[in-house]
Design a protein around this nucleic acid. Sequence first.
DNA 1: CACCATGTTCCTTG
DNA 2: CCAAGGAACATGGT
Length: 286
Amino acid sequence: MPELPEVEVLVRHLAPLLKNRTVENVLVRRERVIRPTRVPQLKRKLRGAAFRGVSRRAKFLVFNLASASNGKPFSVLGHLGMSGRMYLLPKSAPLAKHAAVVLDLGDDHFIFEDTRYFGRFTLDLSPLESLGPEPLDRSFCSDQLAPALAKSTQPIKVKLLDQQLVAGIGNIYASEALFRARISPKRPARKLKPAQVAALCHAIREVLEEAIRFGSTVPLNFPGGRRSDSLFYYGTQPSAENPRTYEERLLVYDRENHPCVNCSTPIRRIVHAARSTFFCPTCQTK
DNA sequence: CACCATGTTCCTTG
DNA sequence: CCAAGGAACATGGT
């Protein structure tokens, strides 16, 4: 599920559902997802605590709660990893096979399910410290990227995945943003011209905003065990006002050999740092 | 069986 | 100290 737009859509979905709900109990079925927090510590902190809000930073979900003992605020940091999902279900529903953490909210369970267990649900907030700028902030512009790019010899596609450069872009939207900015993914970061850096910033913002806009039009109540056949858990059902599925909105990602929407040249796939990159060799020239 | 997968961190090498 | 590359993490789909 997990790049910035998917997390943003999930946060907007969860926030009203969790607000003012009290955690009655905590079940940790996979200790690795709460690390370095330990089970007793998490239970002590969460039992009786009430959700006050949910926000997002990069690909992280930040759950804000008020402690049961003294009402003091504290946060839990969530991350979906590669395969994480978070949702509420009535307590009567059977638990998914890979439900890693389950919060008893009274009538419902809040479930963090994660098949591959790369995700997190932890009291350790330190991963937030090293993140770069939020690409959707008003202040985000090429002034913030240019100095860092000027120092890097890495291909721009690889550099875009660096969460210290910009926080929240993943493998899908890196390819999509470069296509929209007509920049070759292979181009060394320091070789981008100022106009290209500006175009890239614009493309990043557009591609992320569009993904949020389309994702947010679709309901998000997905219990575990389904939809394993699609990239995302929303936007995959065509509707009257949105006849294209979400995946079809991706112009290059996972479209090797499909014709480019601009020029019909077959989209190519290359591998950078062990990850797939998709681009149009005609539109995205060096 | 082989290969691929939306992410992050750790280790090694230069 | 830093940049860069690759493996590791764990499971499932094709």
